[in-house]
């Protein structure tokens, strides 16, 4: 499979801040890849470098086999970009704006009208072509933003926070639209909305403090973290006894008491191997009442928080 995006040691410095730090990644053609990270993780800076808005401080970018530094215009022609705030001219009608965007991106004049109609159909804008952009709701503006990004049929579509600011219904519609881009385009989208990424993308890149700290499918990432398993227990008994009993189980590396109510202690143990049987035997052997025992499955939020060290979002 041909590589669509390849970066080597990509770095971006802003005076005393390193926004993107030595990022090397490879994305295959036709994939839908989600870039996941907290605010300030460097997602937008990375995307802006990939689409040519920013020049890297160090490192190389190749898009569809072309060197972005050497063949800048050819690379830009292969990309459609939607920033978080759609880049629109409010005084124009949707049709005029899409014609402008198509011509600007090199669509031959004779084919522009067909491209505009086709793109409008795809983005469910056909009945809004005559409307001035300033009269549209934010959800429709986002659609026009996606339409301008795909009107020239780029090989790569880059979407920065495509669902930010949308209401639940618009989110569902936007998700369908982004999904429809898969296959025909390679799609790279950023978000800090974890369920959104997991529902839309084949592969995830987790970014933290300017670095890609992990990549893979949601399942792969969860598996990766699953090497250190977590088991949840509800045990009737005295708090200290429960903790000591669980800590003595072979293979357990940590015990955390999550809560206690009506004589029932809720605990979580962490281990390298699956120690559910040993833990159950130890609890019963100590004369404590084992009420429940389960392996904790990490959802995407859990994966993400653990990968990023559970830090709070930054401004």
């Amino acid at each position: 499979m041909k590589t669509m995006i390849e970066t080597r040691h990509l770095t971006k410095d802003y005076e005393d801040l390193r926004a993107v730090d030595d990022v090397s990644l490879s994305i295959e053609r036709g994939q839908c890849v989600g870039l996941l990270g907290l605010n300030g993780a460097g997602k937008t800076t990375l995307l802006r470098m990939l689409c040519g808005l920013l020049t890297p401080s160090e490192g190389d970018i190749r898009i569809d086999g072309l060197d972005a530094a050497e063949e800048t215009l050819a690379v830009r022609g292969r990309i459609g970009f939607l920033p978080e705030n759609p880049p629109l001219y409010p005084e124009m009608t949707v049709a005029r704006f899409l014609r402008f965007a198509a011509l600007l991106r090199g669509v031959p004049a004779l084919g522009v009208e067909a491209r505009v109609q086709e793109t409008a159909q795809r983005c469910q804008l056909a009945d809004r072509l005559g409307d001035r952009i300033e009269t549209l709701s934010y959800g429709y503006r986002k659609r026009v933003g996606i339409a301008q990004a795909i009107v020239h049929q780029p090989a790569l579509v880059i979407l920065d926070e495509p669902i930010a600011g949308l209401d639940p219904r618009q989110i569902v519609e936007m998700r369908e639209l982004v999904r429809s881009l898969r296959g025909e385009h390679t799609v790279l989208l950023s978000s800090h909305n974890l369920p959104e990424i997991s529902q839309t993308c084949d592969k995830l890149l987790v970014m933290d403090r300017g670095r890609i700290i992990q990549q893979g499918s949601e399942h792969e990432l969860a598996e990766l973290l699953g090497r250190r398993r977590r088991i949840l227990l509800q045990v009737r008994g005295e708090r200290t006894r429960v903790k000591d009993t669980l800590a003595r189980v072979s293979g357990v590396s940590g015990v955390q008491i999550l809560g206690e109510a009506d004589g029932v202690v809720e605990a979580e143990i962490e281990s390298a191997a699956d120690v559910r049987e040993e833990a159950a035997r130890a609890v019963i052997g100590a004369g404590l009442g084992l009420l429940t025992l389960s392996r904790k499955e990490l959802d995407l939020e859990g994966v993400f928080l653990r990968l990023t060290g559970g830090r709070e979002g930054q401004a």
């Binding site: 689409c51 040519g52 808005l53 215009l73 050819a74 830009r76 022609g77 990309i79 970009f81 920033p83 705030n85 759609p86 880049p87 629109l88 001219y89 409010p90 965007a101 600007l104 991106r105 090199g106 301008q148």
Partner: peptide
Amino acid sequence: QTGSFPLLLTAPVK
């Protein structure tokens, strides 16, 4: 100010 610059700056235009 309006955030429309990326339209021009990401286009294949010098």
